[in-house]
Simulated assay, not measured.
Amino acid sequence: MDMKVADTGAHAKFALIGPEEEFDPRITAHRGDLADIALAGKLFAPHYAAPMPMRCSAPKAMLRRQGGKDHEAVSELLHGEDFHVLDIAGDWAWGYCGHDRYVGYVPVHALQHQKKTPEPTHVVCARAAFIFIEPDFKSGVMKRLPMGARIACGEISACGYFLKTGKGFVHVRHVQPIGTKVVFDGSNGTAALAEQLIGAPYLWGGRSGDGLDCSGLVQMILMLTGVAAPRDSDQQLLALGEEIADGEELRRGDLVFFPNHVGLMIDKDRIVHANSFMMQVSIESLADVVARFAADSEQPVLARKRLS
């Protein structure tokens, strides 16, 4: 597709020749009146905007389909994660997440400009981490951050158990350097991480240790083991792993996909998943889960996939 630039100055105008490209609105920053400047020449919009680089400064913030607390949550932005803002209207910023390009609205008060926040160095790998006033577990707690949150850490304390952050201290057992992989059981640790979250409440759109949905659980634990994953289960089905041959026995860490759902095997017979039936992260017999989906679907299992 060709693009015509009518004005090469500050107010350049763009025109399309030919039909617009097909796109997934979940990960394409395009709405009726505005689009990301990167889409100029690919998708039509009355206006294009260059993204403003922001970062989540709150412990977490829900990403919503429209601006307003009464609108549906579609995902969640965690402390230290980047968010690229294309528009601000009132208390809400519209843009997309840096880690998976998921599009939506977040509260403006949950964001700070990247230039005003330190680059995160560590990610919370425990179900939650406390930020203590002093490098002492008996001292007061300043903040609680959920699994998946990112923070900037400096030198280690004299006792060897705490890392200094911009505001307080975090225990070394609760964080890991960004880019490293958690190893629990001689493997990449995905099943062990998911088991840490058993009992965490089911939250539509959630993807933190405080509450999550099925694909949010998979995305977060894969991130902690060094695997980038898209946000939703249908996207994950297409992007992750290799198909397991029919008749081959499932292993710990395998993914099983159902209609609009995904879970992780902890052994050949049982699955751990965030589900609305139990309203929490739970372990169930895979046969029981398949039977529930079979009641409403002719194909209860869409795929069985193994991560390399």
Rank of each mutant, 00 (worst) to 15 (best):
L237Q: 14
L237R: 14
L237Y: 11
L237M: 11
L237S: 02
L238A: 15
L238D: 15
A239Y: 08
A239N: 07
A239F: 11
A239T: 05
A239Q: 11
A239D: 12
A239E: 12
A239H: 11
G241R: 07
E242G: 14
I244Y: 07
A245T: 15
A245K: 12
A245H: 10
A245C: 08
A245F: 02
A245Q: 12
A245Y: 04
D246V: 12
D246F: 08
D246E: 14
E248C: 09
E248Q: 14
E248P: 05
E249L: 12
L250R: 10
L250S: 09
L250V: 03
L250N: 09
R252I: 06
R252G: 01
G253V: 01
G253L: 08
D254F: 02
D254Q: 03
D254C: 04
D254Y: 03
D254M: 02
D254I: 00
L255E: 02
V256W: 02
V256C: 03
V256T: 05
F257S: 00
F257H: 00
F258W: 01
F258T: 10
P259V: 08
P259H: 01
P259A: 01
P259G: 03
P259I: 10
P259D: 06
N260H: 14
N260I: 09
H261D: 04
H261Y: 06
V262M: 05
V262E: 07
V262Q: 11
V262G: 06
G263L: 00
G263Y: 00
G263S: 03
G263K: 01
G263V: 00
G263I: 00
L264G: 00
L264T: 00
M265F: 08
M265D: 08
M265A: 06
M265N: 07
M265S: 07
M265L: 12
I266P: 01
I266Q: 02
I266G: 04
I266K: 01
D267R: 00
D267L: 01
D267W: 00
D267G: 01
D267N: 11
D267K: 01
K268A: 15
K268I: 06
K268C: 11
D269P: 02
D269T: 15
R270V: 09
R270F: 05
R270I: 09
R270N: 13
I271K: 07
I271T: 08
I271M: 13
I271D: 09
I271V: 12
V272M: 06
V272Y: 06
V272L: 04
V272C: 07
V272N: 04
V272S: 03
H273L: 00
H273K: 05
A274C: 04
A274K: 04
N275P: 00
N275F: 03
N275L: 07
S276F: 09
S276T: 09
S276G: 10
S276K: 10
F277R: 15
F277G: 13
F277I: 14
M278Y: 14
M278C: 13
M279S: 15
M279H: 15
Q280M: 12
Q280F: 06
Q280H: 09
V281D: 00
V281L: 03
V281W: 04
V281T: 08
V281K: 02
I283N: 07
I283Y: 07
I283G: 05
I283C: 13
I283Q: 13
E284A: 14
S285K: 13
S285D: 15
S285C: 14
S285G: 13
S285W: 11
L286C: 08
L286H: 09
L286G: 10
L286M: 05
A287C: 05
A287Q: 11
D288F: 03
D288W: 02
D288C: 09
D288Q: 12
V289C: 13
